[in-house]
């Protein structure tokens, strides 16, 4: 049963991704991509990585994609949605509804198959405890390095964002 769910989820992920990369409107692309990430998260769960699955949803689908959305809105990159006041037609909302529906169905199915979240669906799975142990013992140094990297990224992003302000100030001065 779990195998079938895997194939369905795989198909959904591929279709959602394909839809995402072909969209003209970036907002639509991001929505499809969020679905694709959900599908992947479910696949991760099936493969015995519940923590990674949770992070997939939180970090990818949650943080990163929202950041994308945020930038798209900020830069007003979405082509004239409000030019035609009719709103999106069925051709635009139906596929994403189908994908979302199938994902929901898969989730419910999985819940039913493994209501307690025990070890039945995956043959092997890494508990958060094991995971944390590995992360902070064997890979402690890497964690430090990655944390530095995040700091640098924050500084870098801050700098790139500020560069123009400084120029504006200089422009004012002159």
């Amino acid at each position: 049963m779990a195998t079938w769910i895997f194939y369905i989820l795989g198909a959904v992920a591929v279709i959602a991704t394909a839809m995402a990369v072909t969209r003209r409107n970036p907002v639509h692309a991001v929505i499809y991509l969020v679905n694709s990430f959900f599908a992947l998260a479910l696949i991760f769960y099936l493969l015995g990585a519940p923590l990674v699955a949770a992070w997939e949803v939180i970090i990818y689908a949650g943080a990163i994609m929202v950041l994308f959305l945020f930038i798209i809105m900020m830069l007003e990159l979405s082509p004239g949605e409000d030019a035609d006041r009719k709103g999106p037609g069925p051709l635009q909302w139906l596929p994403v509804l189908l994908i979302g529906g199938s994902l929901l169905a898969c989730t419910l199915l999985m819940l039913q198959l493994d209501p307690g979240g025990g070890q039945e669906l995956p043959h092997w799975y890494a508990s958060p405890r094991d995971f944390g142990y590995a992360l902070f013992h064997e890979y402690a140094l890497a964690v430090e390095v990655v944390s530095f990297q995040l700091l640098f990224a924050a500084v870098g992003a801050f700098y790139v964002g500020r560069a123009d302000e400084r120029k504006e100030k200089m422009g004012d001065a002159t």
């Binding site: 990163i64 930038i71 900020m74 830069l75 990297q149 640098f152 870098g156 790139v160």
Partner: peptide, 15 residues
């Protein structure tokens, strides 16, 4: 890594 990459690249997109 991805979040770092995305934060910088989106900042650059804005720039």
């Amino acid at each position: 890594l991805t979040s770092a990459e995305v934060s910088i690249s989106l900042a650059m997109v804005v720039y």
